[in-house]
C-alpha cells in the first residue's frame, strides 16, 4: 500500500506513494542533467568550481554560468517540459496514443507564421515579433481546427484529430511553398528555426517564457484532474457532473498555450510532445498527476540533454537541440519498447 493522506483545513489529497516516488526520481534525473549541463561547455567547470564562482558573485565563471549557460539550460527545460505536458494532456483528451502538439496543427501553424514573418519582414521589428507570430499562428490554427470540428455544439476526439492533421498538413504545405518560392537565404535561416533550438538564449527569454508558462499553469494545474477524466465515456463523465464539452475545450486551450509558448521560444521540436508522455506512461504506470509531472521532467531532461549534446559533442559547432531531441530520445524509447516486449 504505502498510500498517504493529507488533510489540512479545507485541503485534502490522497497521495499514492509509488507513482509519486517514480515521478520524484524523474525530477531528480532532471536536476542532475541540469547540473551537468551547467558544468559542461566550451570550458569544463567542475561543480565545486562553479559553485564557488557563484558564491563569489562575480568573475569569469560567474559570468559563464549565470549569463550564458543558466538561461540556456532553463529555457531548454521550460520548452521540453511544456511540450511534454501539452502532449500528455492531448493524448488524454484525444484518447489517442499518437497524439502530440502536431496533431492539432500547433507546430504547423507556428512554423507557417514564423516563416511568413521571416519571408515578409526579413526578421525585422524586434526580438518579440517572432515569438508573438509563432503563438498567434499556433492558436489561430487550433482555433480553426476546433471551430471546424464543431458540430451541434460538440466536438469529438476523432473529428478533432482528423481535422487537426489536415490543417497541420495545410500549414506544412504553406511553409514548404514559402521556402521554395522565397529568397534563397530564407531556407537556411528558417530551417534552423524549424529544427528547433535554444541558441543564444538570454535571461530575458528564460524569464519571460517561465513567467508566461507559470501563468498558463495557474489555470492548467487545477484542470489536470479533468485530463484524468477525459478517457472516460462521455456519458459516464457527464454522469459524475463533468461538463464534457467545456472541460475538453479548456484542456485543449491549456495544451495549445503550453505548446504554442514552447514552440515560440524553442522552435518546432514536437517529437518531445509525442514521446515524453509515452515514456512517462511506461515509467509511471498509473494515470494521474504524478504521471503528468513525470512527463514534464522527462521532457525537460530530454531537451536539456539534447542541447548539451548539440553544443559540446561537435565543438566548435553549436548544433540546434531539435536535432538531438530525437537522437537522444528515440534510442531510449526503442530500447524501452524492446525490453518491455521481452519481459511481458
Amino acid at each position: 500500500m504505502g498510500d498517504m493522506t493529507i488533510r489540512l483545513a479545507g485541503y485534502s489529497r490522497r497521495i499514492a506513494w509509488r507513482p509519486w516516488r517514480l515521478a520524484g526520481l524523474s525530477l531528480l534525473t532532471c536536476v542532475v542533467i541540469a547540473l551537468v549541463s551547467l558544468a559542461c561547455g566550451r570550458v569544463w567547470l567542475p561543480p565545486g568550481e562553479w559553485l564557488a564562482g557563484l558564491k563569489r558573485g562575480e568573475g569569469a565563471i560567474w559570468l559563464i554560468v549565470t549569463q550564458l549557460r543558466l538561461p540556456r539550460v532553463v529555457l531548454a527545460a521550460e520548452v521540453g517540459g511544456a511540450l511534454a505536458l501539452s502532449g500528455w494532456i492531448l493524448q488524454q483528451v484525444l484518447r489517442n496514443p499518437l497524439a502530440s502538439p502536431d496533431t492539432l496543427g500547433l507546430s504547423g501553424g507556428a512554423s507557417a507564421a514564423v516563416v511568413a514573418y521571416l519571408a515578409l519582414a526579413a526578421g525585422q521589428g524586434g526580438a518579440w515579433v517572432r515569438p508573438v507570430a509563432a503563438i498567434a499562428g499556433a492558436l489561430l490554427v487550433v482555433a480553426s481546427v476546433y471551430a471546424l470540428a464543431l458540430r451541434g455544439g460538440r466536438v469529438t476526439p476523432y473529428r478533432l484529430i482528423l481535422i487537426g492533421v489536415g490543417m497541420g498538413a495545410l500549414a506544412g504545405a504553406v511553409v514548404t511553398l514559402m521556402l521554395i518560392v522565397g529568397r534563397a537565404e530564407l531556407a537556411s535561416s528558417a530551417y534552423v528555426w524549424l529544427v528547433g533550438s535554444v541558441y543564444g538564449a538570454n535571461r530575458a527569454d528564460a524569464v519571460t517564457l517561465g513567467g508566461l508558462l507559470a501563468l498558463v499553469l495557474l489555470f492548467g494545474v487545477p484542470l489536470i484532474r479533468y485530463a484524468l477524466l477525459a478517457p472516460l465515456d462521455d456519458a459516464l463523465a457527464a454522469g459524475i457532473g463533468v461538463s464534457v464539452p467545456a472541460s475538453r475545450l479548456a484542456l485543449i486551450g491549456v495544451a495549445s498555450l503550453l505548446a504554442g509558448l514552447a514552440i515560440a521560444w524553442g522552435g518546432a521540436m514536437a517529437f518531445v510532445g509525442l514521446f515524453a508522455p509515452h515514456l512517462a506512461r511506461r515509467w509511471v504506470a498509473v494515470s494521474g498527476s504524478a504521471q503528468a509531472l513525470a512527463a514534464v521532467a522527462i521532457g525537460a531532461s530530454v531537451v536539456m540533454s539534447a542541447d548539451l549534446v548539440g553544443r559540446t559533442l561537435f565543438l566548435p559547432l553549436d548544433l540546434p537541440a531539435g536535432i538531438f531531441v530525437a537522437a537522444v530520445g528515440a534510442p531510449f524509447f526503442i530500447g524501452l519498447l524492446i525490453r518491455e516486449t521481452r519481459t511481458s
Binding site: 478517457p231 472516460l232 465515456d233 456519458a235 459516464l236 454522469g239 506512461r281 504506470a285 498509473v286 494515470s287 504521471q291
Partner: peptide, 11 residues
Amino acid sequence: LLPQQPRTPEA
C-alpha cells in the same frame, strides 16, 4: 447514472 458497457480507461 451507470451507462451500458462504459469504455475502460487505461492505467
